[in-house]
Amino acid sequence: MWAWIAHDLRLYRMRHKMTQEDLGRVLRCVKSTVSRLESGQLQLDEKQAAKLDSLWNTHGHFTRLLVYAHRAHNPNWMRQHAESESRAAEIKSFETCLVPGLLQTPEYTRELFRTTLGIDDVERHVEERMRRQDILDRADPPTLWFLLDESVIDRSTSDPEVMRKQLARLLEESHRPNISIRVRPRAAGLHAGLGGSFKIFFHELGDVAYSEAQFGGRLVVSASEVRGLVVQYERIGAHALPENQSRELIKRYLEASK
């Protein structure tokens, strides 16, 4: 669907004998942004779609395509997720049952791929996930906010040593100045995040989110949906432990595993 939108954007522009600079003035963006929209590197938003429909009198063509694109499963979800993650200046992540990928140890990732996801070529996927963690050590690392359900840190692995190392890694990373890790305790009861894990990526060119699902995921580009997930994140976090108390809870699980 996104490829269709990108194709039709260029098609309509050329039909109306407009340059990318001309269209950029309509959409209030630069030529390079139009080029990226037409190549599929960027995705059209609702306001831009409405402007195009009005400009070219399409009777809602781009707006309709956008609705279906948002609903569809994207087979390139993992690539788009990784790209959004690498470009983000700030990330907010909520996890219901697994340690966030950016904080996983190689051993934890390896067991995850082997036992739960049934992925072939496990080592290649482990290496790819570890490369994603390079953003933690770059000169301008993003600000990372992690909310974890307590089930994330009390879930056992087939080899207890794997989880011990993972819990130690969480404690270590929690002391970085750009990383916040907070745990929502089970005693806090049911909450809005039980429907699934999600992340919000904050970019200069617009915020996007990623919602997890079975056998894939969905990149959320609708501004209203992203705002809804921001509110959801705050609601979940309202009953999470502060950072210091979260560390203490992780320490207790670490000590109990020895």
Rank of each mutant, 00 (worst) to 15 (best):
L194F: 04
D120Q: 14
D137R: 12
L219C: 09
L52H: 05
A187E: 14
G60E: 04
K31A: 13
S222H: 06
N244F: 02
I5R: 00
K165V: 01
T63I: 07
S224L: 02
F215P: 01
I153D: 09
G195F: 00
P242N: 14
N76P: 00
Q166C: 04
H7S: 11
M18F: 12
V122H: 00
G193E: 04
W4M: 10
L103Y: 08
R252H: 14
E83L: 13
W77K: 02
L23D: 09
W77H: 11
L144E: 10
S158F: 11
L190M: 13
S151L: 00
L44S: 06
I181C: 05
W77Y: 15
Y233N: 00
E234H: 08
E204R: 12
Q104H: 05
L190C: 10
R15A: 07
G216P: 05
E212N: 08
K47E: 15
F198W: 05
F198I: 04
A69M: 02
W2G: 14
H70T: 09
D8K: 10
P142T: 08
L167A: 04
I179P: 08
L144R: 07
S32E: 13
P142Y: 08
D159I: 07
H16G: 02
E161T: 12
P177E: 07
R25K: 15
L194E: 12
W145C: 04
P141E: 07
N76G: 10
L9D: 05
A209C: 08
P185Y: 03
R132D: 13
D121W: 04
I250R: 08
L170M: 13
G40F: 01
D45E: 11
R87Q: 13
T116L: 14
R64I: 09
V67T: 13
E234D: 15
L219S: 07
E21S: 11
K165L: 09
A209D: 10
T105I: 09
G40N: 03
F146T: 10
W56V: 06
L167M: 05
S180C: 13
D22N: 14
S246G: 10
H73K: 08
Q43E: 12
R28Q: 14
M1I: 10
T116C: 11
P185M: 01
G217R: 02
G60P: 05
R218L: 11
R64H: 15
Y12F: 15
I200M: 03
R15G: 01
C29D: 08
E85N: 01
G118E: 12
N178F: 14
H70Y: 06
A72E: 15
S211G: 12
V183R: 01
S180W: 07
V67I: 12
H125A: 11
D120E: 15
R114G: 12
L170I: 09
N76S: 14
I91V: 15
S211N: 06
E127F: 04
V162F: 03
F94N: 01
R129E: 11
L112Q: 09
E248W: 03
T157K: 06
E111R: 00
H7F: 14
S93P: 01
W145S: 11
F215C: 06
D134C: 01
R15K: 14
G101Y: 10
R25W: 10
L55E: 10
I91T: 09
Q20V: 02
